[in-house]
Amino acid sequence: MDSSDSSLSGRLAQLRQRIEQACLQAGRPAGAVALLPVSKTFPVPVLAQALDLGLLRMGENKVQEIRDKQAELADRAVQWVMIGHLQSNKAKDIARLASEVQSLDRLSLAQALDRHLQTEQRSLDVLVQVKTSPEPSKFGLDPEQLPAFMQSLRSLDTLNVRGLMTMAVNSEDPQAVRACFATLRQWRDRLVELGHEQVQGLSMGMSGDFELAIQEGSTEVRVGSALFGARNYR
């Protein structure tokens, strides 16, 4: 992977242009969609380049990776966003290190986060992950459980619930992908009608499908390879 600064800055410019173009085609303002760089598996020097380009939020899938990278970037103002499936026994580290969790999908995890956040005397932005795809490999709350789940979160003062997150079905059929995103938007609108006005964010869309997500109302896209280049999973 060519991770020189010019290459990264060039990919960032292209990505921002694609996001802006998708917004215009959807009849939305150019700045309506935020970019969350997904830095999982990419080494610290690449992240340092991204930070130099003004990308201060980084999405990670694993708590251990956040721990390791935070130790190396302790002198930089990185905002770590947990986007991967989170086990309750890792809530202590996330309460200490993360600025946001986008994969909240069960009450036991919410309670564990709240408990450790109280100890840390801080709060955390969270998104509720919703399962809009039939694939067994995808995590998330059943959409029908959302109203009751949102109600149960009201008593946890350390959690600022600001939106919903989903991963679309892995399919070549754009209509199947769009249906996942449309489902999340419809449930967001329903929650607002039920009195959860703070639930505005829709984190949906990744490198391969973010234009479709923007057409369906995404407010933030999670992009890794289209920004940083191909991943090396070895």
Rank of each mutant, 00 (worst) to 15 (best):
Leu227Asn: 07
Leu97Arg: 09
Phe228Ala: 05
Ser137Trp: 01
Ser99Gly: 15
Asn160Leu: 13
Ala71Met: 08
Asn232Gln: 13
Arg185Gln: 10
Glu193Met: 09
Val128Leu: 10
Gln118Val: 06
Leu15Tyr: 12
Ala71Val: 01
Trp80Phe: 09
Gly27Thr: 09
Ala30Leu: 09
Ala213Tyr: 03
His85Leu: 10
Glu220Gln: 15
Glu120Tyr: 12
Val199His: 05
Asn160Met: 12
Glu135Gln: 13
Ser6Asp: 15
Ala213Trp: 05
Leu97Trp: 04
Val223Phe: 08
Gly59His: 05
Thr132Phe: 00
Gly54Asp: 03
Asp105Arg: 04
Val101Gln: 10
Arg28Ile: 10
Ser225Ala: 14
Glu211Phe: 04
Ala32Trp: 09
Phe210Ser: 02
Glu135Ser: 08
Asn61Val: 02
Val33Phe: 12
Val130Glu: 06
Gln17Gly: 14
Leu184His: 00
Glu120Gly: 08
Leu191Met: 15
Gln17Thr: 15
Thr132Pro: 00
Arg185Val: 00
Gln121Ala: 14
Ser103His: 07
Leu109Lys: 12
Met82Ser: 05
Leu194Arg: 13
Ala110Pro: 13
Met150Phe: 14
Arg57Gly: 09
Asp173Gly: 08
Arg178Val: 00
Asp125Asn: 14
Val128His: 04
Ser225Glu: 14
Ser3Arg: 14
Gln70Thr: 03
Ala26Ser: 15
Glu120His: 13
Ile83Val: 14
Leu164His: 05
Leu191Asp: 12
Pro143Ser: 04
Phe42Asn: 05
Phe210Trp: 02
Val221Leu: 11
Asp93Asn: 10
Ala34Cys: 10
Ala71Glu: 07
Glu211Asn: 06
Pro29Ala: 11
Gln49Leu: 11
Glu193His: 08
Gln151Leu: 13
Gly195Trp: 04
Ser9Arg: 15
Leu184Gly: 00
Pro37Gln: 13
Cys23Ile: 12
Gln14Lys: 14
Asn170Lys: 00
Ile94Met: 08
Ser3Asp: 14
Gln118Tyr: 05
Lys138Arg: 11
Leu104Asn: 06
Ala48Lys: 09
Ser4Ile: 08
Leu113Asp: 07
Glu120Cys: 12
Ala179His: 12
Ala26Thr: 04
Thr41Ala: 01
Ser123Ile: 03
Gly208Cys: 06
Val46His: 02
Gln121Thr: 14
Val33Arg: 07
Ile94Lys: 09
Leu53Asp: 04
Leu36Ser: 05
Phe181Cys: 00
Ala176Tyr: 00
Gly31Asp: 15
Gly224Glu: 05
Leu156Gly: 08
